[in-house]
Simulated assay, not measured.
Amino acid sequence: MTGSKVVNFLQSRVDLTRGQESSFLTPDFSSATRRGDILTWDPAIAGVLGGLVVQAFSGDHAGERHLEGDELIVAISGQLTVVLLDDHGGVQETIALQENEATLIPCGVWHRLAFDGECRYLFFGGGRTEIRRG
């Protein structure tokens, strides 16, 4: 590492790599491609993508899935619900997370997050992501 860097983690993501230099990056969806109602985003990372999110309302998409690795969700404050979906958008399972609880979402599983109020959470996961527009 050439030197320590301090960033605002709410405005950055981290690419954690093994055997290479890890780096901070700014979320950039300009390279996303659309096929029907599916948006595919490739952050072009070498390792694991991670970030801190503050969110109070559920997203406007109908789910997402990560194509290259599992995703870890850790509730830091507040509460959230991870909704696991089938390939057609039907609810398969809901997982309620309270402060300091975590869950792993398997690679390729459609899911979305639901919120009743403000929540801070960390996520760590792999690469290419498909987002189903609602």
Rank of each mutant, 00 (worst) to 15 (best):
T103I: 01
Y121C: 00
S22L: 00
L104D: 04
D70R: 02
G69Q: 11
L84D: 03
Q11L: 12
L85W: 06
F115W: 05
C119Q: 03
S12W: 07
E130N: 08
Q98F: 09
T40G: 05
Q55K: 15
H61M: 13
F57H: 15
S23R: 15
R13N: 10
S4T: 04
E130T: 05
V83D: 06
V6L: 15
F124Y: 02
R128Y: 04
D87E: 10
G127S: 02
L72C: 09
L52R: 08
T40M: 03
A114M: 07
E21M: 06
S31I: 05
E64T: 06
A114G: 10
D86A: 01
L113Q: 05
I73P: 00
R18A: 12
V91E: 14
A62N: 11
S58C: 03
D28N: 10
K5C: 04
V14Q: 02
W110R: 02
E101W: 01
I131R: 13
D15S: 00
V53E: 10
G51C: 00
Q92Y: 05
G117Q: 09
S31M: 12
T129L: 14
A75M: 04
P106S: 02
T81P: 13
E71P: 04
L25W: 09
L72Q: 13
S58N: 05
S4W: 05
S23I: 03
Q20F: 10
E118L: 10
L80D: 11
E71T: 14
A44N: 13
R128W: 03
A102K: 12
L39H: 15
E71Y: 07
I131A: 09
G36V: 04
A114W: 11
L25Q: 09
S12M: 13
L72V: 12
L104A: 06
